[in-house]
Every structure is written in structure tokens, then in C-alpha cells.
Write a protein that binds this DNA or RNA. Structure first.
Lengths: 337, 337
DNA sequence: TTCAGGTATGAAAACGATTTCAGTAACCGG
DNA sequence: CCGGTTACTGAAATCGTTTTCATACCTGAA
């Protein structure tokens, strides 16, 4: 492995000049630049990144925290984030907290040890009070998350509106007994959606009914379970709002199996606009989230913070959500085909 | 930010002793160790990882190359790999080649610049000849990939057998006109499956028919297209083998839409055993791949190579695949419910 | 002619750890 | 009492860059 010293020797120049060439500094004559380039090529020289990081106090690496990757929403987020990072010359380290506060806290040390220039939290497992002290070591940006206490930038989607438009759609279809179905992380993404859900109900003068609320639904299997729980109720709901397409798909799949007609007997609305919404029969009405845009913005904000070094400032960037109507809520949509 | 020097001063000892404590070296008296620990805690000291890497020539970071994360197979691989990495004290940098040889080559510089200790390739876009020179900078391990030329460890699945058992299953169901459907990357995962496919056909005395071969199917949309292409043939196939559950799902979804009964009119077998196989109606017969085991093994092999420093050795670790029969190939499975 | 300022280069310090080397004290068997 | 381990500690070298500082030349304006 050749070092900058080797290059300097071969070119008959000093380390300093070689460094200047590498970093595109001004004040290097064209002929010396050529000499250096030639020497670098001849030796197959590439600067050692540890040495670089040590001296310049930056790593060009960003850590992205997600609960888990398999969740399609987070897959999409990671994919988009990695692309943006690459475009800006950054590498991405993936940290799966698996919903564990301890794991999250442990990964936070990446910031303290200066292994990364910043941390993007697409999931929060600890109280902000616990996380805040890490701000002295580098920037933290929230992505798809929000915390009342957090004095850092937050790039998010308008989840209140998302819950609202989805629910309003069901109300417009004439439904009044609408079940509510979400996961139960400490994240307030779900809580925001619930606010929108309640707001829509209120507008139509419908009361929120706790017996229709299911707050432990994450996966398709949970959807199947919830389907049976709903149907076992004295007066089952005629529609259900879910926090993810997977749960919606689980409900629909189970309904199909048991001869419950969707949407006539039960209208279902999902969330995320994942591929599954168009593969299952009937296709799923859902809320589209501009994940790519959000990821891109979060990364840009992060880079900005890395450079400006002013981390402790609250900024909110919000993107709109869009309802996508498919067959799982509108009967005649099926007939159209 | 406090350094090891600060800790040493506060403890009234030398940097060397502090370093010994950090790295659990022997020959440190119990009382000095206590002093150091106390000083570290008091200062909130954490060693700087760039400095560490520079001196000790290791980063405890591994790069994982995948074409893209959104593909559920690779999501699963990344998830499993990250978990294993964390368990072994390693970080994972994600590199999406997006099927581009240039991007792959570019990411390879992570090895050259010593930003990572090793590279795990879950996808190969360049000729091995192009990749091989990087071996002088660190270990490369193939995961789910295989290359005749490559003189490095390869952790893989028995794709020949996978193609074989899936096809044999269709043949046993009485099918003789079996379509073959795969993606067209340069990866030989697909080619191996094709070998298995042909082997099964040969055993039953059925000839491979090129008109039934579709080699450009990656996503569910492609599945839809292929469905129509198949049905437009003079004598359409009665069964189809696909290289992924998504493609299978696309075919089934489109078949459902057009009143083509699965499996009576067309039997479909997928690959990967993704969640979708149980959500769609009819559920999809598929081939289960032990992705987690493979990821874990690949990581262990990588760590072993990092330590042993003998990279240029061919080793093959192979895991078996398993057929999972569901409704998309066996009619009476439906009746059982 | 002088002086300010832009251009070009290199010597040496700095980044923050680990590793090598050398030295001292304690212990133990002969 | 001596020679040889074993236990413990620290000074200094080292990893490979970037950055600071010093120096020198050249140009053009006063």
C-alpha cells in the first residue's frame, strides 16, 4: 500500500503539494499537478480514509436508524436514503434498533466515537432527554419522526392529514362504524394519524368508539387476527382504517378466506401504497407517502447541519400525503373492470 | 471532546496504561485500572475511532453490496446481515449497485481506501477479472453468488436443486408444457436454476422449449406482461416456473383479473417464500431459501478471513432449498379449506 | 525603487489512538 | 545471593493524512 509520502517522493515534491492536488486546492502549478497525478496513477495510490478522517475531523459517513429493514416502508426509506447519500458523496451505515431502546442508545455511540458525521433517526425508542446529550458530538435529524421536546430538525409527513383524508373517504362512502387499527410503538406517527382519524369522525358527528380500536397491529398476521376480533363484536364495523398496507392485506386475505366480501361487507383502507396494494384482490385503497422526497430532504438537511455546525435548532419540513382510491373501499371500482 | 491524554492526566498515568485498560490488555494492576475507569467515566471519554483505525489498521466495518434494497429478497439479506454484524461488533455499510458495473467498481474503493475491512458481494456486476485486483486490499466474500473464476469463499444456496424440485413438482402434477421465467442479470443464480429446471424436464423426457422461456422478468409488472405473452401463444403453457414470488404474484393477479383459473388453467410456482405468497389468493407454491443462515455464515466467513488474512482461497458453503407447496399448483389444496 | 499582495512550494505540527521498546520491581528456584 | 522469569509502567515511535506557518518569487501600483 503506497502512501502520500511515496507519491511525493516519486513526483519529487512534498507531501503538502500532493495533498493540495488531492483536495483540489488552489496554488498548484499545472506542471506539478500533472507530475502528482502521474505518480498517483503509477502507484495506484488512494488516500487512506482513516488518516483523512482523523486529521480533518469528518468521516463522510452518516448513520441511519430504523427499527428494521424488512418492513417495506423502511426498505423504501433506506433505499432512497442510500441513493441520496451516494449522490452527495456520503456512505450510509445501517442501524436496526429492533424497537429496543438499549440498541438505539448503543448505536448512538457511533456519533460519540466520531465514526459518523451525523445520525438520522427514522425511529425513536428513547425519551428525547436521553438522546439530547449526544447533540454535543454531532447533528441529529429526525426523519418521519417528531418529538415535542426535540430541538432538532424534523423532516416528516403530514400524518394528521393522512389519517384525516383516509377516514373522511370512508365517511363519504357512508360508513359510520369505522374501526381503527394501528401499531403501538412509542412513535407518534400513529398518534398523529389517530388525531386525523378523530378529526374526520368529529366533522361527521360520529363518536370515537374504543371497542373499534386495535392498537397492536403491525403485520399481516395481526391483520388476520384483528379481522376475527372485529367480526366477533356484537355490531361489527363496516369499515376499517389501518396503519399499514400489510395489516390491510392480512385483513383482506382473511376476509376472502371466510367469504366476507370486500368492500361490500367491510371496506378497508391501508397506508403506505406498497406494491401489495395492487397485487391483492381487491386492490387496496391506501395513502401514498412521498418517501423518496422525504429521504432526500432529510439527507440534505443533515449535510447542511454537518457543515453549519448549528445542530440545536428546531426546524420542521412537512410533505403532503395523498389518498389513492382502489377497490377495497369502492364497490363500483370493481365493476369498472 | 476529551482524548486519551486527558484521561491519562486525570488519572495520573501514561497514555499507554489507559490504552491497556481500554483494550483489556494484561499487566495492569487492579488499582490503576480503577483509576483509569474512574477518569474515563468522569470525562465521558470514548476513544476516537478514526485514530484507532489508523493505528490498528482495522475499522470494524464491512461493506455489503446488493443491487437494491427494495427487492424483498435483499431486504431480508440486509436485515439478517446487519443483525449478525452487530452481534460480532461490526458495522455494516450498504452499497446499492443498482445493477451498474460502474457503481460497483466505485464502491470497491471502500476497500482500497481502507474504509472497510472487507466486502461481501451479494451481487456481481463486473467480470471477476475486474474485481480480483481489489483482493490485495482486503477480503471479498461472495454471498448468494458464485463465479467460476473467483478464488474467494462463496456462501450460497443450492439453486440447481431449487430449480429442480420446483420443476419436478410441476411435472409430478402432470404438467408437460411448462414455461420458464427469470430475470436476466449476469448473476448465475438464475442460470443455476435453469440447469435444475432442464434437469427435471430431461428426467421426464420433456424437451426444453424456447418459446416458453422468458428471461426478462424482474417485478410484478413483468409478471403481468409475461402472463399475456404466454396466453397469446398458439399452445399456452399449463404451468410456469418463476424466479421470484413477485413475478409469480404479478402473473396470478393478472390471471385473476382475466378469469384465468389458478392452478386449474395455469399452475404457478414462485421463489423466495416472501410474505406475499400467503397474502394473495390463491397462495403461492414457492421455494424457501434459508437467507438468515446464509447471511450469518457469510459474515462469519468474512470475519474469519479478516483475521486470517488469507483471502485468495476458494471455499464453497452451500445451503439446501426447500419446496413449499401451496394453492397455486395444487387444486385440492383449495378445496381443503 | 519599494512595497503590497497574489502565486507557489515545503518543513513541521497536529489529529488521537496503539505498539514497540526499555526499564523497574517483585518473586522464585538453585 | 544470583540469574531468570513474570508483572507492571511509561517514553517515544508510529499510523497517513491535513493544516499551519514560513519562505520565496513575481507582478503591478505608488
Amino acid at each position: 500500500m503506497s502512501t502520500i509520502e511515496d507519491v511525493a517522493k516519486l513526483a519529487g515534491l512534498s507531501r503538502t503539494t500532493v495533498s493540495r492536488v488531492i483536495n483540489n486546492h488552489p496554488y498548484v502549478s499545472e506542471d506539478k499537478r500533472k507530475l502528482v497525478m502521474e505518480a498517483m496513477k503509477q502507484l495506484g495510490y488512494v488516500p487512506n480514509s482513516s488518516a483523512r478522517s482523523l486529521r480533518s475531523q469528518k468521516t463522510d459517513v452518516i448513520a441511519l436508524f430504523v427499527p428494521r429493514i424488512m418492513n417495506p416502508f423502511f426498505s423504501q426509506l433506506v433505499e432512497a436514503m442510500e441513493i441520496s447519500a451516494a449522490e452527495h458523496g456520503y456512505q450510509l451505515i445501517i442501524c436496526q434498533t429492533r424497537y429496543s431502546p438499549e440498541k438505539e442508545l448503543n448505536y448512538m455511540n457511533l456519533l460519540k466515537t466520531k465514526q459518523v458525521d451525523g445520525v438520522i433517526l427514522a425511529s425513536i425508542q428513547n425519551d428525547w432527554k436521553v438522546l439530547e446529550p449526544f447533540l454535543q458530538y454531532g447533528p441529529i435529524v429526525l426523519c418521519n419522526e417528531f418529538d415535542e421536546q426535540a430541538n432538532v430538525p424534523s423532516v416528516m409527513l403530514d400524518q394528521v392529514h393522512g389519517g384525516y383524508i383516509a377516514t373522511k373517504h370512508l365517511l363519504e362512502q357512508g360508513h359510520r362504524r369505522i374501526a381503527y387499527c394501528r401499531g403501538s410503538t412509542r412513535s407518534n406517527v400513529a398518534s398523529h394519524r389517530e388525531i386525523g382519524f378523530r378529526k374526520a369522525l368529529a366533522e361527521y358527528g360520529v363518536e370515537f368508539d374504543e371497542q373499534y380500536a386495535f392498537r397492536d397491529a403491525f403485520h399481516s398476521e395481526d391483520g388476520r387476527r384483528v379481522f376475527h376480533q372485529m367480526m366477533a363484536l356484537p355490531t361489527p364495523p363496516t369499515a376499517v382504517f389501518t396503519g399499514s398496507d400489510e395489516v390491510a392485506a392480512g385483513i383482506i386475505s382473511e376476509a376472502n378466506k371466510h367469504g366476507c366480501r370486500i368492500p361490500e361487507q367491510l371496506a378497508v383502507v391501508g397506508f403506505d401504497n406498497q406494491e401489495i396494494t395492487e397485487l391483492i384482490e381487491p386492490s387496496i385503497t391506501t395513502v401514498h407517502q412521498p418517501v423518496d422526497k422525504m429521504a432526500q430532504k432529510a439527507l440534505e438537511v443533515m449535510i447542511d447541519k454537518i457543515h453549519s455546525r448549528k445542530y440545536k435548532q428546531r426546524e420542521i419540513y412537512e410533505f403532503p400525503l395523498k389518498l389513492i382510491v382502489r377497490e377495497s373501499t369502492v364497490a363500483n371500482k370493481l365493476a369498472q373492470l
